[in-house]
Design a protein around this nucleic acid. Structure first.
Lengths: 218, 218
DNA sequence: GACGGTCAATCTGTATGCAGCTTAGCTGGT
DNA sequence: ACCAGCTAAGCTGCATACAGATTGACCGTC
């Protein structure tokens, strides 16, 4: 395997990670020169990285002003979640990949971490566990088109959804533990389709929480 | 409305158009300097445009070699079509937009053009009619996430699918006429959901043709 | 004190130069 | 005739310089 991710891809991934980890919350300015200094490159690859993720709508670049991290509008969030609710059940139906021991092991590890989280909540840890769980599930998607869309909607939803970690604390930790337990059971059964439907269910719960605590109002 | 599409977006759209119109068929080299001269800009915005569409897998850029238009692998084509078959029925269910007289008028215009095509087939015209029909249908999709995916899979499928125009001629013209007649009827009924299912059906037919004439073999 | 205008700081958009990589074609030896 | 090696041309990747846009602060005036 060629792990030669270009410098642009590395920067792109890092910017997306920071956005959905809320390290650069909506409103933050992404200054090309600053990021360039951080990665010890010129502005060119940084510009390229920002440009590549522009289609997600998470960053808006205006001439003379800068690139600012955007919060998706409530309507956009609803549409993204509506899409995720439809995509989730497809995970198991569109040429799923086979479950390996590595998947099972990672799930156990995440469950353990989530249990710790339930005792002593930490927003950063919450996000990280969610992120790794998403990676685990995406790895079971065999259809590359679906996998790409699954990632895209994840990034679009993440920054809003992860704010719940800060707002609700233990409540979401408990939900995460439940989700991981259910996913673990499905992995034991070798049933990828079940995982898709589990995702469907929990995305629904997550969206309900967002509607209640964040999108309240118009 | 702000029609201030940036130079980069204009070039990006044009490159994609040329790819799915088969003006730059798979194997063609996209030379940055050449395109730069054509658009009277420097290599920078051209580079940006090519970089932005790299995630579609239609162009592969290698250092020291160039950017070459790629034909998706048979397996990738199958996966893209599998995805489109799932997305099509969602067109009518996910907050569809309302049908206007303009939609109806455009459909009639396209049907007329398709009938002419049936008499005297021309691959370029076939592609153009398909392209405009796609635009018409995408315009009925209210969910912006679904609309984005619909376009992405369209671009990915187009260059393979449009080769049928060259290979089969009148057969696909007849299919296009049928499709436009059915879409027209659905538009008359104001039934966007019906259009989604019509798409589902005809994408299935199109995929079967591709399997038969292009993906034959491994 | 409040307001309008101007200027400077700062950021993105674009052009250009250079280094590194790849490959086609030539050349010399066998 | 064939093959290995080399060279030069051409392309992308990155750095840098400059032009254009925007904003906030400062200053003068009413």
């Amino acid at each position: 395997m060629q792990d030669d991710k270009s410098i642009v891809e590395i920067i792109q991934d890092e910017i997306l990670r920071r956005i959905c980890f809320l390290e650069t919350p909506p409103g933050t300015q992404l200054k090309e020169a600053e990021l360039a200094g951080e990665f010890n490159v010129s502005r060119t690859p940084v510009r390229d990285a920002i440009s590549r993720i522009s289609h997600l709508g998470l960053v808006e670049t205006r001439n003379g002003v800068g690139s600012v991290v955007m919060a998706l509008s409530p309507e956009a969030i609803r549409q993204v979640y509506a899409m995720r609710l439809e995509l989730a059940p497809l995970i198991g139906t569109m040429s799923p990949r086979t479950i390996t021991d590595e998947h099972r092991r990672l799930c156990d590890e995440l469950l353990e971490a989530a249990l710790v989280l339930h005792g002593a909540f930490d927003p950063g840890r919450y996000i990280e566990i969610n992120h790794r769980l998403h990676g685990l599930i995406a790895d079971l998607i065999g259809n590359q088109s679906l996998r790409a869309f699954w990632w895209q909607t994840y990034y679009q939803a993440a920054s809003t959804w992860h704010r719940l970690g800060h707002a609700l604390g233990a409540e979401v930790a408990e939900a995460l533990v439940s989700e991981l337990r259910e996913v673990g059971r499905a992995l034991d059964s070798g049933d990828v389709a079940a995982i898709g439907h589990i995702q469907r269910v929990h995305i629904g719960y997550g969206f309900a929480r967002i509607e209640r605590h964040i999108l309240t109002g118009p």
